[in-house]
Amino acid sequence: MRRLFPVTDQTVPAASDEEGAAGGGGVPGALTDREWSLAELAAAYACPEPTAGGRRVPWLRANMVSTLDGAAQHDGKSQPISNAADMRIFGTLRALADVVIVGAETVRQEAYRPARARAEFAEARQAAGQEAAPAVAVVTASLDLDFSLPLFTSPLVPTLVLTGAAAAPDRIAAAEKAGARVVIAGDGMGVEPVRAVQALGELGHTRLLTEGGPRLLGQLVAAGVLDELCLTVAPMLTAGDAQRIAGGPTVAVPQRFGLVSLLEEEGFLFGRYQRT
């Protein structure tokens, strides 16, 4: 892997994985072309921690992958358009997060499992006051989910279910019986993105990561709550009618994001963009 932006001619020394995955590692220079350690990836993707009134406020980043022709999936899944480096970044972003937000359709399509604890990040998470692994928060209006899945029955950290106040009481009861924590984030059937972010922040989750799917990401974009996009561009063409990374409502005015960093490995581009 090598860093294309921001450009520097020097390589900054970095901590090894054994020294701690987020323990002050530096970021390699542009001329470096090798496999980065988890410490280096954690430094490159360190999560901003904005504050208001002396308290941390939520920062919501999305992690998505797209082909050259804009497909976010192939045959309904993102794995076929990913690669090993993309999965290392995927794991790093999860290890930095307090909670992973995902849509119910993605849970059903991709057989979502609970996040696991990573020994390489244990010390850093403990120092940051985080649980051993991030919680998963499922956004769902209908609660039409299989609550017998490991995501609900055996997570390391209880799974959250974000839904609206008008959700069916029997489905809420089923979620709670399975061990999930139901969080109301809307007055009707659906979830309101602004309230979802606020509710997670009130639970102490300020490092927020969403992995989609496209419909959920589109809702977050339209609501103006997305702070950062980590986008992998795969050097692949799929054609067909697959969804792009964000769908749903159109924003009145395109939102401008600035490029923070750009990495490359095996033709895959790993961009990090933040709202300007």
Rank of each mutant, 00 (worst) to 15 (best):
S37L: 08
P155I: 14
A246W: 00
P254D: 01
H205Q: 14
A43Q: 01
V157W: 09
Y273W: 14
A178G: 11
E264I: 02
A15D: 05
I89E: 05
A42D: 13
V225E: 05
I89N: 09
E176S: 05
P150R: 14
A122R: 03
C230R: 01
R215C: 00
M64E: 13
I81S: 04
L208Y: 07
L208I: 03
L60Q: 11
A14P: 07
L4D: 09
D86A: 05
P28K: 10
D241P: 00
V157C: 07
A15K: 14
G76P: 04
V139E: 10
G188A: 14
E211Q: 15
Q10A: 14
E266Q: 11
V251I: 13
H74E: 14
A115T: 13
G20T: 04
P150M: 10
V182Y: 06
D170R: 15
T276H: 12
F257A: 03
A30F: 04
P50E: 10
E105A: 14
A185H: 02
Q79P: 05
T250M: 12
A21H: 03
A127S: 02
V65R: 00
S142V: 06
A115D: 09
L263W: 15
V225L: 00
S154D: 14
A246M: 04
Y112Q: 05
R55A: 15
D17C: 07
A119G: 01
V100P: 06
V107S: 04
L217Y: 00
E19Y: 03
R244N: 07
R125I: 00
A175S: 09
V27T: 15
A199E: 06
L259D: 12
Y112I: 11
Q274E: 14
A43M: 00
E211R: 08
S16W: 14
F152L: 12
V221R: 01
A173H: 12
L96R: 10
L203P: 09
V99E: 07
Q243M: 04
G224H: 05
P114R: 13
A133F: 11
P155W: 11
R113E: 14
G91T: 08
W36G: 07
I245Y: 12
S66N: 05
A223Y: 03
T163C: 05
S66Y: 02
E105C: 01
P48E: 11
P58G: 03
I184Y: 08
A111H: 14
Q219P: 00
V253C: 12
G54H: 13
A84L: 09
G76C: 12
Q243I: 00
R56A: 15
T206P: 02
V161Q: 11
L38K: 11
A222H: 15
A119L: 08
D69W: 07
A22K: 03
P28V: 02
V197Y: 09
E49N: 13
I81N: 00
S78I: 02
A22C: 13
D69I: 03
A115H: 02
G103Y: 02
V100M: 07
V191F: 08
E131I: 01
E19I: 03
A141H: 06
W36K: 08
P48M: 08
P13V: 04
T11M: 10
P13C: 10
A39T: 07
